[in-house]
Design a protein around this nucleic acid. Structure first.
Lengths: 337, 337
DNA sequence: ACCGGATGAGTTATCGTTAACGTAATTTGA
DNA sequence: TCAAATTACGTTAACGATAACTCATCCGGT
């Protein structure tokens, strides 16, 4: 935290090296156009002055900011940091910097933040779990050049997507629950305005439907431990009967687990519990929670890889579907039944 | 994701409104200098063209990017997202955008990332839990104007700090453990290169020392569940005797808990366990973990508030110390002893 | 000796915005 | 009523970098 930065410019380096700005620019960007001797002189000068190119000036002229916006509903939700890390790992190796924005689970702020990122001249945006309704989403997407949605889809002209095959996940989960003897199902469905919530719910309905069963109860809630807790408590208080609870994600599953514990309901004895995402927490509670694992880091990597292709106008898939994987744990294993 | 953005510039707005660029600039930045009528004409034109100022051009000229870098060791560590959110809440209300960078627990990458943020012309940097040794830290800090360190200190000319009173925390924890009868202490101390690790360890030593006790065993480790698990397993395997384990943070405490569980050691019966940070997880495992709560969101808010003061050259404290709070839970409560 | 094509480097003109200054026209004050 | 102050704008010149072009020089081949 120095007192008086006097920013070193290209000009300064050029002056010290006794060449023109352009020559310095070319050399420092490895575009050749100078003899080895001159190159060395320039690099030495840059080194000596501790020259750091001004990224804004560079971007302004080159119309590339090498900056990418990442929008997440809530970075405190352990689902998202790993997506960010996956994205960052790819971005980093291509010289991009990430701007993370949290919308704090508010659909209103999404547009505002998107707008701000566009104004920041980001080269692209990775938008995770957009909550905004589709009709509002389209005009927002139209203001940016390159967008990859995670856990959400849009028309091909608006954005590409990386999604999880929630229908498959739901089927795997339902089949597993049926296999262990569950017959009455409750669904804690997550945020009503979330695309993924409906994808999962539809998957569950379909999977159950193919066995001639319908869920006994469905309740939307916040995608948090607290949300799951409240929802489960509410379902249980209503006297709904079920022997299996399918949860939006592991956080809500943990919340549901707490609710069961508080009411003296045994998991998995009385109620089997299944979550989504396979966050660390799922293996740390007692009982451990059966979950549909989602490759979060890979989602981030894929999304960024796809985005870079779009930015560079290389051919890219319109949609990438990743498969969830059933991880059977304590919350659905009746040890003594 | 529109096909052919033709960026709308100030010029375009000026042309449509029939005034000069400067007038548009002034009006859109609420600096007056135009009649109400002209202002309306300009605002209408901007609205109609859907004009969005180019933040880079603005920054280039004004020498203010309204952008702030946040460096964290690992955003997947639940300690950091809340700091980020706290910082973001303040930043947002002042018109600043945050760039988050993960160093993935590598001291090498810290300098590199810091450098990149400086090149990005951020107006300031919040650097959390810098791992870099102090002699390497100083020259890095010197390259930026405004820096606030979290969980780390530096000389006043280099950066200001927001820290937690770990000595107090350690004392509270030790006193509590002594009160419940613990006499042999093990310390799982976290990353050896982390400032906070030594602050806590010194605090523990001092607190114990004032009672004429020294820790039986000290082991450094990664600040993760895995790290805590490995360290605890190692301590236990060495046949070290202790009836209390003081952990660097809740993640390592959870890891230690798992290690105990695997070895059939009862917590808190055989070993009492105490962590730091009070992350959600501490209340979700069985037994729940006694922790020294740290106001993470508040750390973020304070750090950003302090940083904005520095940026605006307003007077600001050199150092802000926040107090941890002992939260007694199952891991130190011997229900039947 | 002459030409085509590398090679090495400089010039000029922006990128989109704002600082600083300039200048009419209008208002104010005594 | 007339200078002084204010209002309402316009002009010019950057901010720090790069794209696109220009122009010598040099080298081999014929």
């Amino acid at each position: 935290m120095a007192q008086n930065e006097s920013p070193v410019t290209l000009e300064d380096v050029a002056h010290l090296a006794g060449v023109s700005r352009m020559t310095v620019s070319r050399v420092l960007n490895n575009r050749g156009g100078a003899s080895d001797e001159t190159q060395k002189r320039i690099r030495d000068a840059a080194e000596k002055l501790n020259y750091r190119p001004n990224a804004m000036a560079r971007s302004l002229k080159s119309r590339r900011s090498y900056t990418i916006g990442v929008i997440v509903p809530d970075i405190s939700n352990p689902f998202f940091p790993e997506i960010f890390r996956g994205a960052e790992s790819v971005a980093q190796s291509h010289g991009y910097t990430l701007i993370l924005s949290n919308v704090v689970e508010s659909a209103d702020r999404e547009a505002e933040i998107f707008d701000k990122l566009v104004a920041q001249q980001v080269d692209g945006i990775i938008w995770c779990s957009a909550r905004m309704p589709s009709d509002a989403l389209a005009p927002v997407l139209a203001t940016a050049q390159s967008v990859v949605l995670v856990n959400r889809e849009a028309t091909p002209d608006l954005a590409r997507s990386v999604v999880v095959d929630y229908a498959l996940g739901a089927r795997l989960g339902v089949d597993h629950l049926l296999a262990i003897g569950a017959r009455c199902f409750g669904v804690i469905a997550g945020p009503e305005w979330a695309f993924g919530a409906h994808a999962r719910l539809d998957g569950v309905k379909e999977a159950l439907g193919s066995h001639g069963i319908a869920p006994n109860a469905i309740l939307f809630c916040d995608p948090t431990i607290e949300g799951g807790n409240t929802a489960a408590a509410s379902l249980l208080a209503q006297g709904e009967r079920f022997d299996a609870l399918i949860c939006y994600n592991d956080l809500t599953a943990v919340g549901a687990l707490m609710a069961c514990r508080n009411l003296g309901i045994d998991v998995p004895g009385d109620v089997a519990l299944i979550g989504f995402d396979d966050i660390d927490l799922a293996q740390l509670v007692t009982p451990t929670i059966t979950s549909l694992g989602v490759p979060r880091y890979e989602i981030g990597r894929s999304a960024m890889t796809m985005l870079l292709k779009i930015i560079n106008r290389e051919p890219a898939e319109q949609k990438l579907v990743l498969q969830p994987k059933l991880l059977v744990r304590g919350s659905t294993v009746r040890s003594s039944a």
